[in-house]
Nucleic acid binder design. Structure first.
Length: 312
DNA sequence: AAACGGTTCAACCGCAGCCCG
DNA sequence: ACGGGCTGCGGTTGAACCGTT
């Protein structure tokens, strides 16, 4: 993008289309026009509003920035969970994913994926569409997000006040076998339809058949062995109990009380019978492989990678 | 304080699909 | 059936920002 070069002042050439960052005046002009005439017919809007912008540019500015219901700020753990899950099912269908995240734009979700998720994958030198990465997400990322979601919901807000409808229903129904977590709380609709039941089955029934989806059930992703599913279930149960204690599963020694990853120590051999999971060859040790600032860094990837290399 | 490098995100581009005449 | 206009989508870019040296 040649933004700075191509942003032209109106004094230069009144007929030249402006590009690059929008000014406050332009924003006001666009908002005012849409307030009076409504959205749509973007090319006509661009001509009549007095903006020296293309219709495309106007549409983008409105939908991604000016529209009143556009949500600003960091994605919540619940939103991140939904993105991970839906991306595993649909891939880079950003607009489709965005439909399930009220107030979030496809652009924002795409940026999140590329700058956060893919960055982590790059650090580990694995592809985000690989089985290894899917396992990483399922094993470590999602539980961490669940824990964060739990913390955020219990500490400062009720679920009802959150923009994402029924995130825990969504998670509990679709990431696991459907256990309703106790921490879901009385405000959750335990008996009623889930988020995806309400929002997806009608619009996407040809893909979904009304059944729950999960990373392991994604159409895009090979089914993982059954014991991976079991791992998820036990991890999820661990979120719901205070006395689950430490247990070992498939070579993973997991202190799963509340997913305190600080105490998480794995020494693994290959974890899948078909030997397709090189990530199982890495070893994660110590108290700080999980970064405290979850919003910025899910893991200390450098450290993780170092251990990964050491094991090879 | 300045230089530098990495990250984020708003904005652009090309393409595909849809609609309508 | 065809072509043109419009809209939406996904990939890419680069300015702005931020942290580090």
């Amino acid at each position: 993008m040649s933004t700075s070069k191509s942003v032209s002042s109106s004094s230069e050439d009144d007929n030249e289309l402006r590009r690059g960052p929008w000014t406050l005046e332009e924003d006001n002009l666009l908002s005012q026009y849409i307030f009076n005439h409504g959205e749509g017919r973007w090319n006509l809007l661009a001509k009549r509003s007095g903006l020296k912008r293309t219709g495309k540019s106007c549409r983008l500015r409105w939908l991604n920035y000016l529209k009143p219901d556009v949500k600003r700020g960091n994605l919540t753990p619940q939103e991140q969970l939904i993105i991970l899950e839906l991306h595993s099912k649909w891939g880079n269908r950003w607009s489709k994913i965005a439909q399930h995240l009220p107030g979030r734009t496809d652009n924002e979700i795409k940026n999140y994926w590329r700058t956060r998720i893919q960055k982590q994958a790059r650090h580990l030198k694995i592809y985000t569409d690989s089985r290894e990465f899917q396992e990483l997400v399922r094993r470590f990322w999602m539980p961490r997000l669940l824990q964060k979601a739990k913390e955020s919901s219990s500490s400062n807000m009720s679920i009802q006040n959150q923009a994402i409808p029924m995130p825990f229903d969504y998670v509990s129904q679709h990431l696991t076998v459907g256990t309703i977590p106790p921490w879901q709380g009385p405000c959750m609709n335990e008996a009623g339809p889930t988020y995806m039941d309400q929002h997806e089955q009608n619009s996407d029934s040809e893909h979904n058949n009304g059944s729950c989806i999960s990373l392991s059930e994604s159409a895009n992703i090979p089914k993982v062995p059954q014991h991976f599913g079991h791992t998820t279930i036990t991890q999820f149960h661990a979120l719901n109990t205070n006395d689950f204690g430490t247990f070992t599963y498939e070579g993973y020694n997991v202190n799963n009380n509340v997913y305190e990853m600080d105490n998480f120590k794995t020494t693994t051999t290959r974890v899948a019978e078909d030997a397709q999971y090189p990530i199982g060859d890495c070893q994660m040790v110590g108290s700080n492989w999980v970064d405290n600032d979850f919003a910025c860094n899910m893991w200390n990837m450098d450290e993780l990678w170092q251990f990964s290399k050491l094991q090879k």
